[in-house]
Simulated scan of single mutants.
Amino acid sequence: MQCHHFDAGRCRSCAWMGQAYDDQVAAKQRHCRGLLAAWPDLTWLEPHRSREEGFRNKAKMVVAGTLEAPTLGILDPSGAGVDLRDCGLHEPGLAAALPALADFVTRAAVAPYDLATRRGELKHLLVTRSPDGELMVRFVLRSTEPVTRIRKHLPALHAALPELVVVSANVQPEHKAVLEGEREIALSPRETLAMRVNGLTLRLRPQGFFQTNTEVAAALYRQGRDWVEEVAPASVWDLYCGVGGFALHVAAPGRLVTGVEVSEEAVAAARATAEDARLPGLRFEAADATTWAQAQEAGPELVVLNPPRRGVGPELCAWLEGSGVGHVVYSSCNAVSLARDLAALPSFAPRRARLFDMFPQTTHHEVMVLLERR
Rank of each mutant, 00 (worst) to 15 (best):
P77Q: 07
T71E: 04
R183M: 09
D132N: 14
E182S: 10
R183L: 12
A116P: 07
S188Y: 06
G181R: 03
P77N: 05
S130A: 13
P99S: 12
L135P: 00
V165I: 09
L94Y: 05
R129F: 03
D83V: 11
R119Y: 00
L179M: 14
S143V: 11
A159D: 06
K123M: 06
L157R: 01
R85H: 04
E134F: 05
R118C: 13
P77H: 08
T71K: 00
K152M: 13
A102L: 09
G181V: 09
P112S: 06
F104E: 14
T128C: 08
A95F: 05
A111N: 01
A111S: 11
E68F: 02
P112V: 10
P131Y: 02
A100L: 02
K123T: 09
E134G: 10
L122Y: 03
S188H: 02
L126W: 06
A97G: 01
P92T: 03
L122K: 09
D103F: 05
V105Y: 05
L84P: 08
A186G: 12
G79H: 10
V110R: 14
V105A: 06
T144N: 06
V105K: 05
T117I: 01
R183S: 05
L115P: 00
K176D: 14
T106S: 06
R183T: 15
L101D: 14
L98M: 13
S168Y: 00
E91W: 03
L94T: 10
T148A: 15
A111L: 10
L125K: 09
G133Q: 01
M136H: 04
E163L: 02
P162T: 08
L75N: 12
S78P: 00
C87L: 08
V147H: 06
G93D: 01
A109I: 02
L187H: 13
L72H: 10
R142T: 12
T106F: 01
K152G: 02
V137P: 02
T148F: 02
G81F: 02
H175N: 15
R183Y: 02
I185F: 04
G81Y: 10
A69H: 12
E145S: 11
L89D: 05
S188V: 04
K123A: 06
V165G: 05
S143E: 01
V165R: 15
L122P: 05
L141E: 04
L179K: 09
C87K: 06
S168H: 08
P77S: 12
V167T: 15
Q172T: 14
A177R: 13
V82T: 10
V105P: 02
P99N: 15
V178W: 01
L164R: 10
I150N: 07
L187R: 11
V110M: 11
E68A: 15
S78A: 14
R129D: 01
E184S: 11
P146T: 09
D114F: 03
R149W: 06
L161H: 07
R107E: 14
T71S: 13
F139R: 11
V127E: 07
D83I: 14
V127K: 08
D83G: 10
L84D: 03
P92A: 13
N170H: 04
P77M: 07
L157K: 00
G120P: 09
K152V: 05
P131C: 10
V171P: 07
E145N: 13
T71D: 08
C87S: 04
L161N: 02
F104N: 13
V147F: 04
Y113N: 11
A186V: 09
L135Q: 05
V171I: 15
A109F: 00
L161I: 12
V165S: 14
A100V: 07
P77G: 11
E145H: 12
